[in-house]
Design a binder for these strands. Sequence first.
DNA 1: ATCATGACCTGTTAGC
DNA 2: TGCTAACAGGTCATGA
Length: 288
Amino acid sequence: MPELPEVETVKRGLEPVLTGAKITRVDVRRAGLRFPFPEGFAQALSGARVKGLSRRAKYILGDLDTGFSLIVHLGMTGRFTTLTPQGLQNLGEFYFETGSNESADGPHDHVVFHLEGGTRLVYSDPRRFGMMDLVETARLDQHKLLRDLGVEPLGNALSADYLAAKFKGKAAPLKASLLDQRIIAGLGNIYVCEVLHRSKLSPKRMAGSVKTDKLEELVRHIRDILNEAILAGGSTLQDFQHTDGGQGSYQQRFAVYDREGEPCTCGGTIKRIVQSGRSSFYCPKCQK
DNA sequence: ATCATGACCTGTTAGC
DNA sequence: TGCTAACAGGTCATGA
């Protein structure tokens, strides 16, 4: 699920549960996810209090009162569920059927955070592409996973001039360049497709060939689409049962993503191509 | 250096 | 209905 809007939604859902909360114990059900958990991971978290949460790109960061920070990436299928003593609670975008998963011992429930007061926070991740690590907060910026990240797409550092400098002389297609986390950190496959469509730019277009005034437009659409998606609670591409309330709904507004063969608003037909191993959806008629 | 591809895993879906 | 192949929001390590 998780591109920037989905990660932001999850972070916002976690905030009321975790801010100020004390972690009493952490159960780790396997050696790691994408990478092994660091040495002493569970012990280092036990007894820590969460001072606050933040997001960098698609990473959720937990600032702990021990001087360490928890880094979490949801990969493709990572999810958090809270189990309160009163029952299940939704976390922003994700809703779960009450009664399912209450034991937190499903085959994909890999990490359980026990909080003071009895609430449990369960991390599940079928594909295990997610990541968790602990790092001294003072050295957070130098962490391997974070140090090479580019600008936040919703921050002030993203501008047409910034992109012009990064794209100068670049032969790689726009699609791949916008997915490059070293340039802009947080965009993923869906939102890049959507942004390119609204900008009327072909995903195949060489990044270096886009003029600055067009880059202005591109930047505006990046911000607009991400903000719209965050407002919608992200996009939910799988059918969760019992969606009683607001699960992510931005998928209903996709102009091109996963719409191969359907008509574009311009009258053209949406096409799917593969670029760097991933699907690009676009309209050859209006995206040049 | 830049760029594209395969690898990592499991689950769901389309097609025969 | 059942099997198989293709595909999926992620990033990283590789080899050209």
